[in-house]
Amino acid sequence: MEMFLDYLWVFLIGGLVCMIGQILIITTNITSARILVTFVIVGVFLEAIGVFDYISAFAGAGINVPIIGFGASLAKGTIGAVKSQGLLGIFTGGLTATAGGIAAAIIFAFIFALIFRSHTKK
């Protein structure tokens, strides 16, 4: 039962975040690049004011899978690195924390670009 509730929260929060994105698309006609940028900045902000971890505690993937989570780990990495390395952390922290995701995106994009070619939309 507890697990079911956990998953329900994931679904509800994740869906809500995505729906906010859709509301932005409908009302302002913004492109997907702008949507992603907006949500990354929101993630950085949520982490910076220390709210992200509270949401993450009960929303799990619902807040970590949306690109907000990516922004939050950028900020978390930077803050952590600033704590341990000082000024250098501002430069090294963010990308170190998100290196896995960015590298994965680059590697898989490259591989699949070699394999596949684009399909015409119907």
């Binding site: 492109t31 997907s32 684009s118 399909h119 015409t120 939309k121």
Partner: peptide, 15 residues
């Protein structure tokens, strides 16, 4: 369609 789309708009596979 596909040449115009990539020149004026977005890649075909973009969701």
């Amino acid at each position: 369609f596909s040449t115009a789309e990539r020149q004026y708009r977005f890649p075909l596979e973009l969701g």
